[in-house]
Simulated assay, not measured.
Amino acid sequence: MERKEALKLVEKQLTKKRYEHTVRVMETALALAKHYKVNEKKIELAAIFHDYAKYRHPEEMKRWIIEEKLPHDLLDYHQELWHGPVGSKMIEREVGMRDPEIQSAIYWHTTGKRYMSMMDKVIFIADYIEPGRDFPGVDEVRSIVYEDMEQACWMAARNTISFLMSKNQPIYPDTFQLYNENIGRNMNG
Rank of each mutant, 00 (worst) to 15 (best):
K4E: 15
E27L: 14
D51C: 00
F135P: 00
N39M: 09
K8I: 12
Y19T: 02
L81F: 03
K54T: 10
K41T: 14
G137I: 05
K12N: 04
D73Q: 13
H72V: 11
K12A: 11
G112K: 08
V145E: 04
Y179M: 04
K113S: 02
R114N: 10
D51P: 03
I171F: 04
A152Y: 11
N186V: 06
D134A: 11
F124N: 02
L81W: 11
W82R: 06
W82N: 05
I125R: 07
S162Y: 05
R98L: 14
I66E: 15
Y115N: 15
M149W: 11
Y19S: 00
T28G: 01
H35T: 10
I43N: 00
E67A: 10
I102Y: 07
G184Y: 14
A33I: 11
R63F: 00
H109M: 10
A47H: 08
P85E: 07
T28L: 03
Y107E: 10
K89S: 01
K41F: 03
V23R: 04
Y36M: 09
Y77H: 05
R18W: 13
E150D: 15
V145S: 06
S104W: 05
I171M: 07
N180E: 12
M187Q: 11
H21C: 05
K167R: 15
I123K: 07
G137N: 03
W154D: 05
W64C: 04
D127S: 02
N180V: 11
I123F: 08
A31D: 13
A157D: 07
I129N: 04
T110R: 14
V86C: 02
C153D: 07
T28I: 09
K4W: 08
M116N: 05
R63I: 01
F49E: 04
L45R: 06
E101W: 07
M61E: 08
E27K: 14
K42Q: 12
P100V: 13
M118K: 15
D99A: 05
N188R: 12
T160K: 13
Q177K: 13
A29C: 07
P170S: 14
W108V: 12
D174F: 06
Q177I: 01
E150R: 10
L14E: 09
K34Q: 15
M119C: 04
W64I: 15
R24T: 15
E80F: 13
R18L: 10
K8G: 02
Y179T: 04
G189Q: 13
W108G: 00
T175S: 08
H109D: 06
K41D: 15
H83F: 04
N186L: 03
V138T: 09
R98I: 14
T22R: 02
D174M: 01
A126H: 05
S166Q: 02
R185G: 10
A157Q: 05
P136T: 15
K34W: 07
D76T: 09
H72E: 15
G112Y: 01
E5Y: 10
E20Y: 09
S162E: 14
E101S: 08
E181R: 00
V38P: 00
I129D: 09
E40K: 12
M165L: 13
M155Y: 13
R93L: 08
W108Y: 14
H78C: 09
